[in-house]
Design a binder for these strands. Structure first.
Lengths: 127, 127
DNA sequence: CAGTCGCAAAACCATTCGGTTGACAATTCG
DNA sequence: CGAATTGTCAACCGAATGGTTTTGCGACTG
């Protein structure tokens, strides 16, 4: 039985936001933008990748609506746009009862680290 | 060789969690699991994709630590594991001040929807 | 025992992703 | 003007994604 598409209510926006957040480079860029506006060169500087690669990451953030670009002369100035983060947060809040009910967050973080497959040979990197 | 990647503090767990959440099928599966345990067949049923495809989605959720598998006879029973969601929520909370300061959440959701696929018509917001 | 059910594993395929290099456009500055 | 700055675009590449079909295996059932 084929039935209809049933689920998946066309949440393309959330797809793009979570996909944008699924890359450490892009998350680091957002952190950087949290301190203020940056142009592409400044955003790309901390990473050892090529300039166009960083530029592509910026475009992914842009497509997700997480940053907004303002062209100023030859410099493209990026500003963080928190709205999609609020949307992602709203999605997560649906499950808030689950983790506040059943686990404490500290244990939660450790379990997430463990289940990811990485070898936690070093100490905790987060408090 | 990774060679001390300057930034990007090795948040593989967060990578996996956000990547798992970046797919509408997997998000729908989590919603389903929020109502209780399900085996793979029940989880796969709402979608028109093949069984192995759904099974792969489950494995992605599993790798992110978002679900736990318990084999019961020939049935693999999945249970939601909220810990990684708490980790993701914790990451997002860093930016909470941004959207609570500058936008109200309702507007935020609308903008997130809009900014996804369409070119922002630039309504012009400030402050 | 034979068959069906629930699921995994493997092989394969098209697309996307993240990265590179090279060429080029536009703006600023000497 | 000519050169440097800032950044895009296009082509290309290897690896990962997301999907398929086929095969097989352990667990139940008639």
């Amino acid at each position: 039985m084929v039935s209809q598409p049933t689920e998946v209510p066309a949440t393309q926006a959330l797809d793009d936001v979570f996909h944008a957040l699924a890359d450490p480079t892009r998350r680091a860029m957002l952190r950087s933008l949290a301190s203020g506006e940056r142009n592409i060169g400044e955003l790309a500087a901390p990473f050892r990748m090529s300039f166009p690669a960083a530029s592509k990451h910026v475009r992914v953030l842009e497509r997700a609506g997480l940053v907004r670009r303002r062209i100023e002369g030859r410099s493209h100035v990026l500003r963080i746009e928190p709205a999609p983060l609020a949307a992602a947060n709203e999605w997560l809040r649906f499950y808030e009862g689950f983790w506040t009910d059943r686990l404490d967050v500290l244990d939660a973080l450790l379990r997430a680290e463990d289940a990811a497959g990485t070898k936690p040979a070093n100490g905790g990197e987060e408090t």
